[in-house]
Design a protein around this nucleic acid. Structure first.
Lengths: 176, 176
DNA sequence: CAAGCCACATGATAGCTATCATGTTGGAAT
DNA sequence: ATTCCAACATGATAGCTATCATGTGGCTTG
């Protein structure tokens, strides 16, 4: 029942863009004409403040839709840069909007996608608001009900906002 | 341009529910028939794992829609409890769905609401993944471009996942 | 106007984690 | 089978923050 936007996009006219690592997909202020979905690699959306400080808004992995809110804006409010070599699918925004308006199934899939992203992002934020690695792992497990698979722990550590070492230690502590 | 779902709901049949602090609005496993919006007070959604560990999925303040993903599920996957005395508006899910299907404006408002929530939650998660209070405040400022108003610092501290004292110190440090 | 409360403020200390260093191991590739 | 690499593992240390304590000032309330 997990809707994959990539599949739905196969119904729409689209182009593939190839980006070298470090290349910009768009800049803040650019006019929005297109919706993007990451196919391979990864794209990071960053907002830069006046003071030079910056804030990551999204780390888009394969399958992720970029800047969902851009569907309803006229210009981008952030920069998009390829962290590594990447490919993205580009769908004209007008086609995307028309599809939402004319296909109830597509509109439903879009709403489900957004709801899911909200749920995931909120969970992550709540986990990260916990203070110790032990608490964060507990909370993560409340959502998964099983210890993470070996080979992926480093990734989980990043998801938990901690260092791999700290996670190794916490897991080791639980083997008794 | 900020869509307030509460306003849109005035178009739909709805009831007001009054909850005492500590009361459950729904339990995991309950059949979903209704969409809720918090009017006053606050409602927390919590998922409990087998091991006894728990994860907060959402802290809904006035104006927040509860468990947006429940629009497409048959039963709840979490518990909803009133942190304090609260009132919520209840809209039959069938009416909500029909409104989305029949009113393009409503569907658009719903999609905008979801996009906004995604953006906010992702930003918060990225801020919380930073290690020091200084970095978190910088990131927060990149989004706001101004120091927080006095009288709200405690709230900001919670948003930054830190203690009020730590935030006071960091702000004090910047007054030079 | 006095009392009370709450946010702001700052010092001291303990505790947890990031980081660096240094192995160990298991699987992939040749 | 040997090499190579990345994940897993664990020790030591420095640094940052949570927490407790204690104080100050402004605003509300009676």
């Amino acid at each position: 029942m997990i809707a994959i936007m990539l599949e739905w996009l196969s119904l729409l006219p689209r182009k593939q863009l190839v980006l070298a690592g470090g290349a910009y997909l768009f800049h803040r202020g650019d006019r929005i004409r297109t919706m993007f979905v990451v196919e391979t690699g990864s794209i990071t959306l960053t907002r830069h403040g006046k003071s030079g400080a910056s804030l990551v808004l999204q780390r888009a992995q394969p399958g992720s839709v970029l800047a969902e809110a851009s569907l309803f804006a006229t210009t981008y409010h952030c920069d998009a840069i390829a962290d590594m070599d990447a490919t993205v699918l580009a769908v004209p925004r007008s086609d995307f909007l028309r599809q939402i308006e004319t296909s109830p199934q597509f509109a439903r899939a879009w709403a489900m996608h957004l709801s899911q992203e909200v749920r995931v992002a909120r969970s992550r934020a709540e986990i990260l608001s916990l203070r110790t690695v032990a608490e964060r792992l507990d909370a993560w497990l409340a959502d998964k009900d099983a210890l993470p698979d070996k080979g992926t722990w480093k990734t989980i550590a990043a998801e938990l906002g901690t260092s791999p070492e700290a996670l190794y230690r916490e897991i080791a502590r639980r083997r008794f």
